[in-house]
Design a protein around this nucleic acid. Structure first.
Lengths: 165, 165
DNA sequence: CGCTTCTTTCAGAAATTTGTGAAGTTAATG
DNA sequence: CATTAACTTCACAAATTTCTGAAAGAAGCG
């Protein structure tokens, strides 16, 4: 039996999770530092850490934290908040917000669709290649519509399972 | 009015699409050569090209084609077929198979789930961090289940819209 | 408004990734 | 079974990316 939860949390266990989960994110295409910063936030009790805390916990320079945070904010995987009465900043994951951003590949999907539409026009909608592109386009349009519905179902499911805000 | 479709297809238009679409794929995380090879296949009338054709059309070395093809085959975005009575190989996109592979990030999802499960155990299911990880885990499990249903609906929709095999 | 505390930007060193030519391997054909 | 066509592997040069320390830039506080 590991030490129970009244005690201080085990930095070893935290680090193990952070590095392991970050590695999976990296494999899925996220750059290394953003992945590690994000995993560290996920594994924090408050869901928010300061730059200094991240820098120390991950053994990386403040510059690296800055870069990683900028990246993550851009893709909406965290939000920055200013600690009132301090120039310290706090970076937070909103439990739900962040994984919704995972399905919000909308921007990407849109650009794919644009490229495909141009392809259909350029190659001719009546050519075999044109038809292939058109079908692919239809698939992405379908997925885009479905994702919205899926997230709605998730919110219901989540409410039932976890309650809360 | 561009030249109609009885005539030879316009290599300019093809190249424009290939490079543009490939660029979007790259932005989404696919390595450059696999992206270009894949786009070229998508834009081909037969849906299949030989190594030599790809090498010429994209102005890349046979080695680059080989590498790209290996990558794409690994992630199930194309299949290789041997042309009977020739040592030439042919690389093909199956219109539907390939984008199903897009939603088949199953392997990735599974590994994420594993890492999260370990995290919940390691940090304690009764800690705030543990609860956050558990909720994230639940989300991925939910998505995994939903994706299957989504693809089923797509197949029905596709049948209605495009008919065919 | 000057001092202090954070954060960001920037130039560059180090590591990684990418694509090539050349050599090596496999398999059809005479 | 030798030849040749096609694909693959490998070592390396070039390009790109990543992280850092140092300097610059905000923002609270006296």
């Amino acid at each position: 039996m590991t030490e129970a939860n009244g005690t201080r949390r085990d930095p070893e266990a935290v680090s193990r999770f952070v590095e392991h989960f970050a590695a999976q994110l990296v494999e899925a295409g996220l750059p290394r530092m953003p992945a590690r910063v994000f995993a560290a936030l996920l594994a924090s009790d408050s869901g928010a850490l300061t730059s200094a805390e991240l820098s120390e916990q991950l053994r990386i320079s403040p510059a690296a934290v800055s870069g990683a945070v900028r990246y993550l904010a851009q893709v909406h995987m965290l939000s920055r908040e200013r600690e009132p009465g301090s120039r310290r900043e706090r970076y937070r994951v909103h439990s739900d917000q962040w994984y919704e951003s995972l399905t919000n590949r909308e921007a990407i999907l849109k650009r794919w669709e644009d490229a495909l539409r141009e392809g259909v026009t350029g190659l001719g909608a009546d050519t075999p290649a044109g038809r292939r592109l058109a079908e692919t386009l239809a698939f992405f349009e379908f997925v885009e519509r479905e994702i919205a519905a899926l997230m709605e179902r998730w919110r219901v499911h989540r409410e039932k399972t976890f309650g809360g805000t």
